[in-house]
């Protein structure tokens, strides 16, 4: 199947097994620039695996993933890593901030990995931290800030490289609903303002409500609700 017209990232017939467990069994996906797509489904349905495949973290056993006209599964590990550094951003549920680095250093980290100088990277990091209202935490270490603040720092980090696609895996999973909503608001606002696409894995309807549309993953198969309706 050719990728849907105008799509930035699309996947077709993805299959991925972890040992005897079939995590993905013919999943499909596509997203346009500036679009927020929620990936929903019960635990163990393969949501996270779909995200990992789409982001080029895990190569699928079979199927195609096309990003911006390039075939992801044809790339080497190093190429995919480079792509993730330059074009993608990531937010996870927890355990993603380096505990030894200060918040601003954490945010600057992806830029530094791309070879940006420390000063420049930290300046860019700070401006993103301001947008996410956590610039007063710059000197603090992740252990010294609250969960909601930490998650905002993580969102700032995921956006600091101006990614074309932002992958968020249960970004509010460890937060109370007030903090979770605030993080979602800031995340989607920031993504819209930079025209980034957001792949949002969540099992919470209230978080999924921040998306433009949702796809449902069940037993390794995906269902694009927009095309169905």
């Amino acid at each position: 199947m050719t990728p849907p017209a105008g799509s930035l990232l699309s996947a077709d017939q993805l299959r991925k097994a972890y040992g005897p467990t079939l995590a993905l069994d013919g999943a499909e996906f596509s997203i346009h620039p500036g679009e927020v797509v929620a990936v929903m489904g019960p635990s163990g349905s393969g949501k996270s695996t779909l995200l990992h495949c789409l982001a080029g973290i895990v190569p699928p056993d079979s199927g195609t993933i096309t990003y911006n006209g390039r075939e992801l599964s044809a790339m080497s590990d190093a190429q995919r890593s480079a792509l993730r550094r330059s074009d993608f951003g990531f937010v996870f549920q927890f355990g993603q901030l380096v505990p030894e680095l200060t918040c601003v250093e954490n945010v600057a980290l992806p830029l530094r990995l791309n070879g940006t100088s420390r000063k420049e990277a930290e300046r860019a990091a700070l401006s993103w931290m301001e947008r996410l209202e956590v610039d007063d935490l710059r000197k603090k270490r992740p252990g010294e800030v609250s969960g909601g603040q930490g998650q905002r720092v993580a969102v700032a980090r995921s956006l600091v490289t101006n990614p074309r696609v932002l992958f968020a895996d249960e970004p509010t999973g460890a937060l109370d609903s007030l903090n979770g909503e605030r993080v979602m608001e800031l995340l989607t606002d920031a993504a819209r303002s930079t025209n980034a696409a957001v792949v949002l894995v969540t099992h919470e309807a209230r978080v999924a409500a921040y998306s433009d549309r949702e796809i449902v993953v069940r037993d390794g198969k995906s269902r694009d609700m927009e095309r169905v309706v």
Partner: peptide, 16 residues
């Protein structure tokens, strides 16, 4: 472990 995986996800080189 978690942190390492996250770092790899956003493209940290093994070498680094």
């Amino acid at each position: 472990k978690k942190l390492l995986s996250a770092l790899v996800a956003f493209g940290t080189r093994r070498r680094t």
